[in-house]
Amino acid sequence: MLLNPFTYHAPSSVKQAAKLYATLADVKILAGGTIVLNTLKKLKQNGAKTPENIISLKKIKALQTICTQKSIITIGSMATCRDIIHSKELKKDCPLLIAVAQNIATTQIRNMATIGGNITGRFTWTEFQTPLVALDAKLHFVTKTGKEKIINAESFFKQNAKTSDILEKITFKAPQDVCFVYKRIPKRAEPDIPIFSICLRASVKKGTFQNVCVAINNAKSFARKDTKIEKTIAKLKTNDKAGTNLLKTLDLSRYAKDGDYKQAVISSTLKNTLNELIAQTK
């Protein structure tokens, strides 16, 4: 399908992009395009209005960087799933994100889709949400006046991922002495989008779980920490029965109605996630 005409802008720096964003009316940011281009087609199909200006971030090379400096990992918003999968820094310092990226969509989409688009795309189910919450990541935006604005990933998703700024990069401390497990339940056989995803972070000391974080995305709302599950896990002993014991006291009715198959899927995923984390620490 031919797209409705728009004016294409390709700034070469974030500053330039922010300036354009501030001055142009009726404007949309374009990253990898896997959501934007499909949306433009759907809007046209439905006879709806499409933006007059597109600001493509593709030519801003600085936004593609992935690096670790003084134990702080920085991922540029234009890093693609593929960049993440092949990053030597992440392989060494944060393999969790590689595991997440590997499961997203299809090869071609992974080659195109950026982490920035995944975070700001405002689909409740997109998959970098839970790991970034579990990593206590910070999102660095550039405002229309060119100033930096830093928001904690958890707060950003609590505010329903709304922004009128440009996401420049994501930073977080390289995890040390903690384990992470990420699990996703796709709608159908893979590849498909998840109906539920979870990222569990914890360390194991003296037979107990410490530093526990449970970030959950039930696809109906954006990712959140579940403090009730975190507290329950923190009280468990780290033995082979931990997963089963977790389920004994847990009320999951906030995610799916009692008796709903989704609740069964969620509880078995929780159990498996915890057991996998224990296995990692052995």
């Binding site: 390709a10 281009l37 499909n38």
Partner: peptide, 27 residues
């Protein structure tokens, strides 16, 4: 499909497979 689902429009950009139906030529 023209909506990034089927792969028929795949081409290589710098050796990597991408979908030309959701890629702007100027990009």
């Amino acid at each position: 499909c023209d909506e990034a689902e089927c792969g028929a429009c795949t081409v290589l950009i710098n050796g990597k497979a991408i979908l030309s139906c959701i890629t702007l030529a100027m990009d």
